[in-house]
Amino acid sequence: MIRHLLSAGDLSLDDATLVLDTADEMARLTEGRAVKKLPTLRGRTVVNLFFEDSTRTRTSFELAAKRLSADVINFSAKGSSLSKGESLKDTALTLEAMGADGVVVRHSASGAPYRLATSGWINACVVNAGDGTHEHPTQALLDAFTMRRHLGELAGKQIVIVGDVLHSRVARSNVLLLATLGAKVTLVAPPTLLPNGVEHWPCATSYDLDDALTGADAVMMLRVQKERMNAAFFPSAREYSRRYGLDARRQALMPPEALVLHPGPMNRGMEITADVADSARSVIVEQVTNGVYVRMAVLYLMLAGNATTEEAA
């Protein structure tokens, strides 16, 4: 297993499968049990270092760490030195002094977790909980976990990811992870919201959502910020949702068992209509539950063992 989880692309097929299988066990071990807590990370300290607000991701990591009996410290931008302009380096040195074993970091700057892991400021394992417009690997893992629970192994499955790919760390991580797992990914977005060089990514692209949905096993809708239209990425929210939003008519184009995912928070009426979000094939709420299992798996695999001894057992 890798020492830091910075990019979904760092996970080999074996690593990714191990995380997903472990998450399966975490689900079994905690669903419907008297004591949901496991003693595994007793005495280990996990720091949630959130330079950017994200209650849902922080809560998910916090719950995951606590279910494994780790001590959890939340550092968030509000009400701490982070908002007073303390540098990433000084914060890292503080965490190191506190004896953090794992640092879960969310940052608005792409690559900030990478800097934290490679700069020599700290020894802790670093988990990227979303960095700028770069990656969000645990989101991709929980998406894959959720799809796998419904669709079985993902090799050969058709997954359509729709929306603001350019600014989406979720899309980047999903493309990399799903490619590793052997799924066939199609990104659908207006050309303005596809990054330069996307033709080199391990996926297909399309501007036509109707066409892409035919034969899809799952569709993942990305959040689209309405403010994007001020930077001329698209003319209006109305035109965006007409061309790239998921409504009941479009959902009907997919096979009846096809899943609908959304990393949240949703803009109902923008990229997804309420009836689709609440439909029987929507697994959006389940994604949240599964997030805890996947993060438990990641924390277990990264923090429970001794990372310095190589695989000898």
Binding site: T40, N306, A307, T309, A313
Partner: peptide, 17 residues
């Protein structure tokens, strides 16, 4: 997950419970 020697080795894959 209950072993007392977890930290002596790299993290291991879990078996089914």
């Amino acid at each position: 997950m209950y072993r007392d020697d977890l930290r002596l080795r790299p993290a291991r894959a879990l078996e089914h419970t």
